[in-house]
Amino acid sequence: MQHYYGIDIGGTKIELVACDARLEVLHRRRIDTPTRDYPAFLHAVATLIGEVGTELGQPAQAIGIGLPGVVDRASGRQLSANVPALSGQTVGRDLQARIGRPLHFGNDLQCFALSEAHGGAADGQPSMFGAILGTGAGGGYCVQGRLIDGYNGIAGEWGHWSVAAHLLAKHGLPVIDCACGLRGCVERYVSGGGLAMIHRHLGGDGDAAAVIARAGQGDALATQALDVHRDLLGHALASLILAIDPHVIVLGGGLSKDERLYRELPAAITAHLFTGVRVPPILPPMFGDAGGARGAALLARQHHPIS
Results as ranks from 00 to 15, higher is better:
4 Y>G: 04
5 Y>L: 12
8 D>Q: 05
8 D>E: 12
10 G>T: 07
12 T>W: 01
12 T>I: 02
13 K>D: 00
18 A>Q: 01
21 A>Q: 12
27 H>P: 03
28 R>E: 05
29 R>M: 06
29 R>W: 01
30 R>T: 06
30 R>D: 02
32 D>Y: 02
33 T>E: 04
34 P>W: 02
36 R>I: 02
37 D>E: 12
44 A>P: 04
50 G>K: 12
50 G>Q: 11
54 T>H: 04
55 E>S: 12
57 G>P: 00
58 Q>H: 11
61 Q>C: 10
62 A>Q: 00
63 I>Y: 02
63 I>M: 03
66 G>F: 00
66 G>S: 01
66 G>H: 00
68 P>R: 01
69 G>A: 05
74 A>N: 07
76 G>V: 02
83 V>L: 03
86 L>W: 05
86 L>C: 07
86 L>Y: 04
87 S>D: 11
87 S>G: 12
88 G>R: 11
88 G>E: 12
89 Q>I: 07
90 T>Y: 06
90 T>M: 09
92 G>V: 03
92 G>S: 10
92 G>H: 04
99 I>S: 09
100 G>W: 10
101 R>T: 02
104 H>D: 04
104 H>L: 15
104 H>G: 02
106 G>E: 14
110 Q>D: 13
115 S>K: 09
115 S>V: 03
118 H>W: 14
119 G>C: 09
122 A>R: 05
128 M>L: 15
129 F>V: 10
134 G>C: 12
134 G>L: 06
135 T>W: 02
137 A>M: 03
143 V>E: 07
145 G>C: 11
147 L>F: 09
149 D>M: 11
151 Y>F: 13
153 G>Y: 14
154 I>L: 06
155 A>Y: 03
155 A>C: 14
160 H>C: 09
162 S>I: 03
163 V>D: 05
164 A>R: 15
164 A>L: 14
167 L>T: 08
169 A>K: 14
176 I>C: 03
177 D>E: 10
180 C>W: 11
180 C>K: 10
181 G>C: 04
183 R>T: 09
184 G>P: 13
186 V>I: 15
189 Y>I: 08
192 G>F: 13
193 G>N: 15
194 G>W: 11
195 L>W: 01
196 A>S: 15
200 R>C: 09
201 H>A: 10
203 G>K: 12
203 G>N: 12
204 G>C: 07
205 D>V: 04
205 D>S: 15
206 G>E: 02
207 D>F: 06
208 A>W: 00
209 A>W: 01
209 A>L: 03
212 I>H: 01
213 A>W: 00
214 R>A: 11
216 G>H: 02
217 Q>K: 10
221 L>D: 06
223 T>I: 00
223 T>D: 00
229 H>Q: 07
232 L>Q: 05
232 L>F: 12
234 G>T: 10
237 L>A: 10
238 A>S: 13
239 S>V: 10
239 S>P: 03
241 I>F: 07
242 L>Y: 14
242 L>I: 06
243 A>L: 15
245 D>F: 01
247 H>F: 08
248 V>M: 11
251 L>Q: 03
252 G>S: 14
255 L>V: 09
262 Y>M: 07
262 Y>F: 15
264 E>L: 13
265 L>I: 11
267 A>K: 10
268 A>T: 11
269 I>E: 05
272 H>L: 13
272 H>T: 10
273 L>P: 08
277 V>H: 00
278 R>D: 07
287 F>S: 08
289 D>Q: 06
290 A>R: 05
294 R>L: 11
295 G>H: 05
299 L>M: 15
301 R>T: 04
301 R>W: 09
